[in-house]
């Protein structure tokens, strides 16, 4: 673990119209680590995650104040170009959502969008590299030009990860990436997360405490829009400091 600060969230408040969804969040996320956000439904985990790449901008009624520093620069300002930000902070969603295009075009979409490849060969190698990193290449190398929607659920999710990797992000956000998958596909994604953290900073929202315990280095527990406790995963699970955390991980709430 590198102990280098990647993301620093300071006094973040988020509102959906009148309703406050996040209260005064302060959280540090380290480079090349997996940080998991856990907590009961509706506690604001996903909202917090979406603050990190400004996906909340898409919701008209959503407003946020406070600071989100990535590499020391505040992204929560009107000057920040969200398009640029999102090429640096990739996202994988809850339900696999491949584009209704071929596997190749799915992965090539980002590089094409940002004009990253100068030639067809360069694009090809980018696609192959991303698919290989996502652990999917061997399974699909013979049908790169078939529909991405024809893959199995787990393969689709890995395709979505490959798609996110193709734009060379530094941070990958995962919003419950395994909640729609069976245990075998889940295991594959978890292995992949282990692999990916060597190169990327990963923030994962999960409902499964076992998953948080398995894959993450640090864990943050949230409750009703507040950050209750955060720290090394092994400490949170073995020796929670807060009563609410204790209740949640022992299954009394949530």
């Amino acid at each position: 673990m590198s102990e280098k600060l990647k993301i620093s969230i300071k006094n973040l408040n988020v509102f959906y119209a009148e309703k406050q969804a996040l209260f005064d969040i302060n959280l540090n996320i380290m480079e090349r680590e997996v940080t998991s956000l856990i907590g009961p439904s509706g506690c604001g985990k996903s909202t917090l995650l979406k603050c990190l790449n400004r996906m909340n901008d898409l919701i008209d009624i959503c407003t946020m104040d406070g600071q989100v520093m990535i590499d020391g620069a505040n992204i929560n300002t009107p000057d920040q170009d969200p398009v640029l930000l999102r090429s640096k902070v990739g996202m994988v969603f809850q339900k696999p959502n491949p584009f209704p295009k071929s596997i190749y075009d799915n992965v090539a979409y980002g590089p094409r969008l940002h004009g990253m490849a100068q030639s067809k060969d360069e694009l090809d190698s980018m696609v192959i590299k991303s698919l290989t990193r996502a652990g999917l290449y061997d399974e699909v190398k013979n049908r790169l030009f078939e529909a991405g929607t024809g893959l199995s659920g787990g393969q689709q999710q890995r395709l979505c990860i490959a798609r996110a990797l193709a734009v060379n992000p530094e941070i990958i956000l995962m919003d419950e990436p395994c909640s729609a998958l069976d245990p075998i596909a889940t295991a594959k994604i978890e292995e992949l997360i282990e692999e990916l953290k060597r190169k990327y900073t990963i923030v994962i929202v999960t409902h499964s405490m076992q998953q948080a315990a398995r894959v993450s280095d640090r864990t943050a527990y949230m409750h009703m829009g507040e950050l209750i406790e955060s720290g090394f995963t092994k400490n949170i699970f073995s020796n929670p400091q807060h009563q609410k955390t204790q209740d949640y991980i022992t299954g009394r709430i949530g």
Binding site: V83, F99, G110, A164
Partner: peptide
């Protein structure tokens, strides 16, 4: 499906690019 549009936005496409690439064709 909004999930397709989200995926496109999440990859750094602008709103108009997302509309032209996915929303309109679909």
């Amino acid at each position: 499906p909004p999930s397709i549009e989200e995926a496109s936005i999440g990859l750094g496409a602008s709103k108009i690019q997302t509309l032209m690439n996915f929303t309109l064709p679909l």
